[in-house]
Every structure is written in C-alpha cells, then in structure tokens.
C-alpha cells in the first residue's frame, strides 16, 4: 500500500512539472520547474518500486537508479541552461536583473 502512495505522489509531482513546462514563459523558467518536479517525481516512483520489491536484487536496482537520476538530471540542466544563454535565448520581459550579460561579452 505504501508503494502505491509513493507512486501516486510521484505522478502528482510529474503533473506539476509538465504543467510548468506548458505554462511558464521562457526557457529558463520552464527548465527550472520541469527539472525539479520531474526529477523528484521519478525518484518518488523509484522509492515506491523499492518499497514494493523489498530488500533484494530489484530493490537495490531502484536504489542505485535514484542517485544516478539526481546527478544526471541536475548536470544536464546546468549544461542546457548555459547552452541556451550562449545560443542567445532571451530572458522573459518580466525579468528584472541580468548579471551574466557583461561576463559573456
């Protein structure tokens, strides 16, 4: 039962993340919302898998997948946001501050 609850929470977080992917205005905000919510949602699903299978071969596989998911998702987000800035993606017009601009030039 605990496994089902964890998986439901994970799917709920994923829904928030994908909603952010549609609604937010520019690439930086989208990446931020989606990376956070979807990564933690999938980690929650994998925790549910761990609870379901118990300690054993399958459970340890889920446990190993969680840190891999965290590191790859965050590093990919850094690379993407940096690439997007160098590519020339504009910040949204509601933005108030941009300290990075003079550093790039």
């Amino acid at each position: 039962m605990a496994a089902i609850i964890l998986i439901s929470v994970g799917v709920l977080f994923n829904i928030f993340g994908c909603l952010g992917l549609i609604r937010l205005p520019d690439v930086y905000n989208r990446l931020q919302a989606a990376t956070k919510c979807v990564t933690l949602g999938c980690c929650s699903i994998l925790l549910g898998v761990l609870v379901h299978f118990g300690i054993g071969g399958a459970g340890f596989r889920a446990l190993v997948a969680i840190p891999i998911l965290f590191f790859t998702a965050t590093v990919a987000a850094h690379a993407l946001v940096r690439g997007a800035y160098h590519f020339g993606a504009k910040l949204d017009k509601r933005s108030v501050k941009d300290d990075y601009r003079e550093e790039v030039k």
Binding site: T35, I45, A76, A77, G83
Partner: peptide, 30 residues
C-alpha cells in the same frame, strides 16, 4: 526556439524512467 525543444527532449528522457518503474511494479519483473 531550439533550446525549448531540447528542454522537451530532456524532460521526456526523465519521464521514461518513471514509466519503466511503474511497469516493473505492475508486471513484477525486475
């Protein structure tokens, strides 16, 4: 823009892991 499309691809890749996890619980195959 092109970065927007790549954000979509990145998030898609993470979502597939969740799908794999749910299918593993459903079919009991590790």
């Amino acid at each position: 823009t092109i970065p927007d499309r790549m954000v979509g691809i990145d998030i898609f890749g993470i979502l597939v892991v969740g799908i794999c996890g749910i299918i593993a619980v459903q079919t009991e195959r590790a």
